[in-house]
């Protein structure tokens, strides 16, 4: 049986762990709101650019045609894996990594040559450990992504696509559906077909702003030509999709961490309760033993007299 001192020490240790997890929970709770706000703020631009592209697309390219020119049919496939720099967020990183790993296996089976860009320290380490060096990796940005990273990724993807090194580009990340729910999401970024634009694959409409509906297929005048407008809009669109995924994932990370830390705090509470009960039981039984001994001793003395 554990001694009273041992139990006391364990209670102390669990209590301080509980304090840490509880603090992390509170920190994440405040960060979620901010991160979700950033994601919501960026929504209107994405909506507007999608609408504008779907208006220009019919004029810049025929239906079913690939909009951005590519040398075509390349076996290179780029996967952008967005996760976190830090752990302690439940299955947040592992889910994305596993999904991307499966996808890589799938692509290899199809005879493609997948390469991966990682955002976050955890996935970078994971893929490096798997013997797959990321072509680009970003660390230390998962909590506060900026437009610059999105820019760099988009630049790599578009260059690779235009020069025919890449046949497809997709992005995997955790979408913050709400403050408590994260959904593993993947979006195909390239190639862009007109159909995918008119039906944006991931409806991420923001409730806060009033989306303005653009009328489709109006006879627009273009300044400069539709082709040139598209050539500007498409890279901007790709940047936006990537940027949005990054900030969305940051919000999801805080949500996942909050939930993981909440569970950890609850578990710690439970352990503290069990240990306190055990502690009291042992204390009581030791008191009982002591009283018995005293009474026994007194009786023995009485008998002696």
């Amino acid at each position: 049986m554990a001694s009273l001192r041992d139990i006391k020490r364990r209670i102390r240790s669990v209590t301080s762990t509980r304090q840490i997890t509880h603090t992390m929970e509170m920190v994440s709770t405040t960060k979620i709101m901010r991160a979700l706000q950033i994601a919501a703020d960026a929504g209107p631009y994405k909506d507007a650019i999608e609408k504008m592209i779907s208006n220009v697309a019919p004029l810049g390219a025929r239906v079913g045609e690939v909009i951005l020119a590519s040398s075509g049919g390349s076996s290179g496939a780029l996967i952008i894996c967005v996760a976190s720099d830090r752990g302690l967020a439940g299955g947040f990183n592992v889910q994305v990594q596993r999904a991307v790993q499966n996808r890589i296996a799938e692509l290899r089976a199809e005879g493609k040559q997948p390469e991966v860009i990682t955002c976050g320290k955890k996935p970078t380490e994971f893929f490096r450990f798997q013997g797959m060096e990321p072509v680009l990796s970003f660390e230390g940005i998962s909590a506060d992504p900026t437009y610059q990273e999105a820019n760099q990724i988009a630049h790599y993807a578009i260059e690779g696509y235009i020069h025919g090194n890449l046949g497809s580009v997709e992005i995997w990340y955790q979408h913050a559906k709400s403050r408590v729910e994260q959904v593993l999401t993947n979006e195909d970024i390239l190639p862009i077909y007109r159909e995918t634009l008119t039906m944006p694959n991931e409806p991420r409409h923001d409730e806060a702003s009033s989306p303005i509906e653009m009328v489709h297929n109006t006879n627009f005048t273009f300044d400069p030509s539709p082709r040139e407008v598209l050539e500007y809009l498409i890279p901007a669109y790709i940047r936006t999709v990537i940027h949005h995924a990054l900030i969305d994932s940051a919000a999801a990370e805080h949500g996942a961490r909050r939930r993981a830390m909440q569970a950890a705090t609850e578990n710690a509470d439970e352990i503290i309760n069990t240990l306190s009960r055990e502690y009291n039981r042992i204390r009581q039984s030791s008191i009982t033993t002591e009283i018995n001994e005293i009474v026994g001793g007194a009786q023995a003395l009485e008998e002696d007299q």
Partner: peptide, 13 residues
Amino acid sequence: KYQIVRPDKLLSE
């Protein structure tokens, strides 16, 4: 109606 949007937010509408 008018909307001015920049990448990080809706500036004015």
